[in-house]
Computed example of a mutant assay.
Amino acid sequence: MNHPYRIGGPGQIVELGESLIAKRKNNVGRVLEQRWVFGGVCPATDQDFLTHIPDKTTATLLPLIIRHVDQGA
């Protein structure tokens, strides 16, 4: 994903989180491929981002935070 802006800023709070996405119909049948996503939102400006990640390690998440969140946040 290519974002032309960074969320947050001086004095603004940015909420970050990750989630595992997988789908099974009525909890029956085979388990499909699971995907991790990571995102953030700045409630003050209503800006956000969401991206697919291969894992939840610090080495994966830290560069995404630096790329998408303003350091003043």
Rank of each mutant, 00 (worst) to 15 (best):
T60M: 13
D48V: 13
G17A: 02
I13M: 15
T57L: 14
V14P: 10
E18A: 09
T60A: 13
R67T: 01
N27E: 12
T58N: 14
G40E: 08
D46Y: 13
L32N: 08
L50R: 12
S19F: 00
L50G: 08
T51M: 14
G8L: 07
G72A: 07
E33I: 13
P10A: 01
N26L: 07
E33P: 08
W36H: 02
A59L: 08
K23Y: 01
R30C: 00
N26C: 03
L50S: 09
K25Q: 02
L61R: 15
T45R: 09
L32F: 07
Y5E: 13
N27K: 10
D70S: 15
V69P: 15
L61V: 11
N2R: 08
I66W: 02
G17K: 12
E33V: 08
P54V: 00
G17Q: 07
T57M: 12
I66Y: 03
F49Q: 03
V41K: 03
R30I: 03
G39L: 01
D70G: 05
D46Q: 15
L62K: 11
A59D: 13
L64S: 06
T60Q: 14
T57V: 15
P54F: 01
C42Y: 11
G29W: 01
L62G: 12
R35K: 11
G8I: 05
I53M: 08
K56N: 06
R67A: 05
L20S: 08
K23V: 00
Q34H: 11
E15R: 11
T51N: 05
H52K: 14
I53C: 07
L16G: 04
S19W: 07
G40T: 10
F38A: 12
L50V: 09
F38T: 05
L64E: 13
N26E: 01
E15T: 06
I13K: 13
T60P: 12
T58W: 12
E15S: 05
P43Y: 04
A44K: 12
Q12F: 10
P4T: 00
R30N: 12
V28R: 15
I53F: 01
W36C: 00
I13H: 14
P43E: 03
V31C: 10
D46C: 10
R30M: 04
L32K: 12
A73H: 02
Q71L: 13
T45H: 05
A73I: 02
G9H: 05
T51S: 10
D70Q: 09
T51L: 08
E18C: 05
I21T: 06
V41C: 05
P43C: 00
V28Q: 14
V37S: 02
V69W: 04
Y5T: 11
T51F: 10
G8V: 07
G9M: 06
V28P: 15
A73K: 07
G17D: 06
V37Q: 07
I53N: 06
G9I: 02
I65C: 09
A73F: 06
E15L: 04
N26P: 05
P63F: 00
G39E: 02
D48F: 12
T58Y: 11
Q34R: 12
L61E: 10
D46I: 06
R30V: 05
I53E: 01
P10Q: 04
G8Y: 07
H3S: 11
Q71N: 14
P43G: 10
E15Q: 15
E18F: 02
L62V: 09
I53W: 02
V28W: 11
H52G: 04
D48S: 15
